[in-house]
Simulated assay, not measured.
Amino acid sequence: MRASPEDHLTIGEIIRRTGVSASALHFYERKGLIFSERGSGNQRIFSRHMLRRISLIIVAKRLNIPLSDVADVFTTLPTDRAPTHRDWQRVSRMWKKQLEERRRAIEDLERELTGCIGCGCLSMKACLLLNPDDALEGRGPGPVRLQEPRAAMPRRGVRTP
């Protein structure tokens, strides 16, 4: 007999299949990332299609994607039925865009750190990590120049307070 996405699994079966602890499953449920119903004996049961959601949560955690981002994407998925191929394509496109933005940010950071720290010069003209006289205090905490979107960042060699 073939398994249907609408079949139900007990919490023990979900734990066995995903490797995720019961407390994590309860947490994900409280956050609205996954959903369960109550079966006979008031036991939590999950639709089989929740396995895919849980798998995506695991992958997102591995990639350091915040659960809030996962929740945003999951809001576009149905909760009362198994998502269709079209639903998953939409989610894939959303995540692809987020991952591309992350990749660009990481590549920009790598370039800046390699150019600045790697050369050893720590030039007052080009270094985006330096903050002489704490001139950037009003722009927020941390390395604000590195945290700004790329378009807002000064060009190499152009000093801005």
Results as ranks from 00 to 15, higher is better:
residue 98 Q to H: 12
residue 113 L to D: 01
residue 145 R to N: 10
residue 150 R to E: 15
residue 53 R to S: 05
residue 54 I to Q: 04
residue 147 Q to F: 05
residue 18 T to C: 10
residue 119 C to F: 12
residue 67 L to V: 02
residue 20 V to T: 07
residue 157 G to K: 01
residue 146 L to D: 04
residue 19 G to F: 11
residue 57 I to M: 06
residue 44 R to D: 15
residue 123 S to E: 08
residue 153 M to I: 12
residue 156 R to T: 15
residue 40 S to D: 09
residue 127 C to S: 13
residue 34 I to C: 04
residue 128 L to N: 01
residue 18 T to H: 05
residue 36 S to V: 07
residue 126 A to T: 14
residue 108 D to W: 06
residue 144 V to Y: 02
residue 50 M to F: 09
residue 126 A to G: 12
residue 35 F to R: 15
residue 60 A to P: 06
residue 125 K to E: 13
residue 71 A to G: 01
residue 52 R to S: 02
residue 39 G to W: 11
residue 120 G to M: 02
residue 36 S to M: 09
residue 136 L to A: 05
residue 153 M to A: 06
residue 38 R to E: 13
residue 108 D to N: 03
residue 49 H to D: 03
residue 127 C to Y: 10
residue 112 E to T: 10
residue 39 G to R: 02
residue 100 E to G: 08
residue 59 V to P: 03
residue 135 A to F: 03
residue 50 M to L: 13
residue 69 D to Y: 09
residue 94 M to K: 07
residue 112 E to W: 14
residue 158 V to S: 04
residue 34 I to P: 03
residue 155 R to Y: 06
residue 81 R to D: 00
residue 26 H to R: 14
residue 63 L to K: 14
residue 128 L to W: 14
residue 134 D to L: 11
residue 142 G to K: 10
residue 86 R to A: 14
residue 104 R to H: 04
residue 33 L to Y: 01
residue 54 I to R: 05
residue 59 V to W: 08
residue 118 G to N: 07
residue 88 W to H: 12
residue 62 R to W: 06
residue 135 A to E: 11
residue 71 A to N: 00
residue 40 S to F: 05
residue 134 D to W: 11
residue 49 H to W: 12
residue 83 P to F: 00
residue 142 G to F: 06
residue 26 H to F: 12
residue 46 F to T: 08
residue 25 L to S: 00
residue 113 L to H: 08
residue 142 G to M: 03
residue 111 R to C: 15
residue 52 R to E: 02
residue 145 R to K: 00
residue 42 N to R: 08
residue 140 G to L: 01
residue 88 W to V: 09
residue 58 I to M: 14
residue 146 L to N: 07
residue 151 A to C: 09
residue 53 R to T: 06
residue 77 L to S: 03
residue 120 G to Y: 02
residue 75 T to F: 03
residue 85 H to Q: 10
residue 28 Y to E: 00
residue 94 M to G: 12
residue 61 K to I: 05
residue 160 T to W: 04
residue 134 D to F: 14
residue 124 M to Y: 10
residue 155 R to W: 00
residue 64 N to Y: 11
residue 29 E to D: 10
residue 122 L to R: 14
residue 84 T to N: 12
residue 19 G to Q: 07
residue 95 W to T: 15
residue 55 S to G: 09
residue 138 G to K: 13
residue 138 G to Q: 13
residue 57 I to N: 09
residue 52 R to W: 04
residue 48 R to G: 02
residue 42 N to P: 02
residue 37 E to L: 15
residue 115 G to C: 10
residue 136 L to H: 01
residue 85 H to I: 05
residue 145 R to Y: 08
residue 155 R to M: 02
residue 57 I to W: 00
residue 128 L to I: 08
residue 108 D to R: 02
residue 73 V to L: 02
residue 94 M to V: 15
residue 84 T to S: 14
residue 87 D to L: 01
residue 116 C to P: 09
residue 79 T to M: 11
residue 36 S to G: 07
residue 65 I to S: 06
residue 153 M to F: 05
residue 18 T to S: 09
residue 44 R to H: 12
residue 71 A to V: 03
residue 101 E to H: 10
residue 139 R to M: 08
residue 95 W to C: 15
residue 53 R to H: 03
residue 138 G to I: 06
residue 77 L to Q: 02
residue 158 V to P: 01
residue 36 S to C: 14
residue 53 R to L: 01
residue 65 I to H: 13
residue 78 P to Q: 14
residue 24 A to L: 12
residue 78 P to T: 10
residue 136 L to E: 03
